[in-house]
Write a protein that binds this DNA or RNA. Structure first.
Lengths: 419, 419
DNA sequence: GTAGGGGAATCCTTGACTGAGATCCGCCAG
DNA sequence: CTGGCGGATCTCAGTCAAGGATTCCCCTAC
């Protein structure tokens, strides 16, 4: 399709934008430091003058986003006052809308989970009812958490793709019948009264890493989301890559095994058809490692999870066939990762997602070496491979982080004037 | 390899940066308009006040980067004075260092070629001698072009990858013996006295598209460089993606044909082993479409080019086997493109490079449809597929555009304070 | 001549930068 | 134990520079 798209012109910037941006830069520096920073250290790090740091610090203190947390003086002279994030300065609500379970979290400013809950995603094909249920659960969660409602910056929703970022809709997700182009963002915003953001689950996970993942969440990296499917979130130079419509990170049809099983796309050995949990479980059943009990049927998410866990137990117990299936999947996944890292030349790959706990040990043993071997830039720099520190609620945590990121992260977009 | 990389902290911004940035924004808006813009139009487009536009216009006029080009008044009132780029306001020199030929261009501010020349890349394994030859050729070219030396902003060099952007070196290019980690940037800067930038050839081509490619060079797109190999340049939201070390765009080992020939990476049917010109020519020879004359031997670049052209002549003349080989390569290339566009969710794919002239008709007939079918976001937006307007010198033109882009493009990086 | 739009001069606001002063603490001598 | 000294941190005024708002002048069409 060759449609005409009028170029969205570059916008200028002005003083207030600059001030706001510098504020977020300083907040970001404090956030990324483990134990807080003094004003002098901040001046060195962000390159602004000490006075500017002082002024902005005051604004941040007034907004209760940071606090003065003691002093640190080892030498002579006035000790430095340490500035730290005030965890209770702001909160965000996150919802991970998954076909099987819907997870809710309330996050504080440092990215810690204040309260979380989980419900089975209501079935049926009536999105309006589901949205009402979700809104009710959010209200309940916020009430129980005891958080001051005025300090809640907003609501983030992580949904399975594809989505339409501009309109805040989910577009025909495979496992949610009747959800074609439901205006999820606007409906939830109205039902909860919170300003709402919708994004893809894998994108949200990557944002969780930048916000709550520590040092591995900075710079340029790819977040490999190991869930029911495999997707990735992309962060380049500390800024998220969402794509034109918010659908970046669709890697399910990268061919990783020329000898693999046929895929619905017409090729063979795609990621989607050769290394997602459902396929590995099926392989295990066929090889006789797992019973053909509840695993093979409709493929309910929890059943897959159970069978997948059993596969790893078998491998742990010494079943070499099970180990082989898993290790082979590591090889395949590493090939997909290599395609992405070679295309984008990132410095790090972060693994995470609901199934990562099971995979981590074996994958981290094998993938770094495999990746090194197929990296186009291996003569210039290595590629760090790590597992995320954010736990299994990464989808919902990431959803809440969408709000924090949108409100407080130093995005260069923030500098530009709006249309 | 899991190395520790200290996070490069976010920097703040200040007033002078802001002023410079707004200047580049305005210049960019004028550049992207086909027939120039008035101050009032500029104010609407970039969002700044008319007075700021006026002030910045004055600065640009003082620097002779823009000129007032007549008036336009159809209704009542004072007619608008049209501001246009002054082509002779700035120049840049570009060199495309290819294993076979080295191309030189002098570019003016609008991206038009003022003067160009071409030499066979000196053989032998003495980079110093080659660099001296190049520097001499640059000097000659600049002299002959009659351009005021003080108006030359710098020298851009497009080199085959991999490169080390930080050090400005080329790292072991496959076809340039003895060129391991040669400090190309510094050597040429010293030899010519010009401030010098080095980048990958495919990246340069993408920059050429943003600077001289018209409307198809804006927004987010992937530039598919069809040369001796196939690589891509990536532009997201009007900013180039270079990657950590400048090596983004290595897509040679994306598997596009599970039934394809084995590749040195251990898989089968990679881009590199199934759809580059050399492979298509070999297929044609095997199928009896082409003679096994000079094509099959050492694979000299010019020989490949000749044979490749003959293949297209045959197809044009009605040889169905030749047409099949070419059309099949379009299918394979479209698969690689689909992997990239699904990963990055861009709005456009731009094809170009030395072999594009031959490919364009058949590829443009087939690839849009193929891509549409395998696009993950096809329900949200289509993907524009176009050929570049920049001609066969795209490597050298892009190299020169590297300088213009670095000097004049509104990169958000420009706003941030330096370390 | 009048109306209406474009462009420039002037003043204002705001943000960061510069230099001087106040604050705080450890150290050392009496 | 106490008070002065020194060093580093932080803050207070003043300056600079950029964009914003208002006003005025100029130009053209009717």
């Amino acid at each position: 399709m060759t449609e005409i798209r009028q170029p969205s012109p570059r916008r200028g910037t002005n003083l207030p934008r600059m001030g706001d941006f510098n504020l977020t830069v300083i907040l970001d520096a404090i956030r990324r430091s483990t134990a807080g920073l003094s004003r002098v250290e901040l001046a060195q790090i962000v390159g602004l003058s000490p006075q500017t740091i002082s002024n902005i610090s005051r604004r941040l203190l007034d907004q209760h986003l940071i606090i003065e947390a003691g002093k640190e003086g080892n030498g002579p002279g006035k000790p430095r006052t340490i500035l730290q994030l005030n965890p209770s300065g702001m909160y965000a609500v996150g919802v991970h809308l998954d076909p099987a379970v819907t997870t809710f979290v309330v996050l504080d400013l440092v990215g810690a989970v204040v309260k979380h809950s989980r419900i089975n995603t209501p079935g049926g094909s009536d999105p309006a009812a589901v949205i009402a249920t979700i809104a009710g659960e959010i209200k309940k969660l916020v009430d129980e958490s005891g958080v001051d409602a005025s300090k809640i910056a907003g609501l983030g929703v992580a949904a399975p793709g594809p989505i339409d970022l501009e309109h805040g809709t989910v577009v025909a997700p495979p496992l949610l019948a009747g959800w074609d182009r439901v205006p999820l963002r606007d409906a939830l915003a109205e039902a909860t009264g919170l300003s709402t953001l919708v994004d893809k689950d894998v994108t949200s996970a990557a944002v969780a890493e930048t916000w709550a993942g520590g040092p591995s969440g900075s710079g340029s990296f790819v977040f490999m989301y190991m869930g029911t499917g495999i997707g990735c979130g992309i962060v380049l130079n500390d800024e998220l890559v969402r794509g034109t419509s918010g659908n970046a990170g669709e890697i399910g049809h990268i061919v990783v095994d020329p000898d693999g099983p046929p895929c619905d796309c017409g090729l063979r050995g795609c990621v989607k058809s050769s290394c997602i949990p459902q396929v590995l479980v099926a392989q295990a059943v066929e090889a006789g490692v797992l019973e053909h009990d509840d695993a093979g049927d409709s493929g309910a998410a929890s059943a897959i999870q159970n069978s997948f866990a059993k596969l790893f137990e078998a491998a742990e117990a010494g079943n070499s066939t099970a180990a082989e299936i898993i290790d082979r999947s590591a090889v395949l996944v590493s090939r997909a990762v290599a395609v992405i890292t070679n295309t984008l030349d990132v410095e790090r790959v972060v693994f995470g997602g609901p199934f990562w706990n099971l995979l981590s040990e074996r994958y981290l043993n094998r993938i770094p070496e495999l990746l090194e071997g197929s990296s186009a830039a291996r003569q210039i720099h290595g590629i760090e491979v790590v597992g995320t520190g954010v736990g299994e609620d990464v989808g919902a945590v990431g959803a809440a982080c969408l709000v924090l990121e949108h409100t407080l992260a130093p995005r260069s977009q923030r500098l530009l004037l709006e249309g």
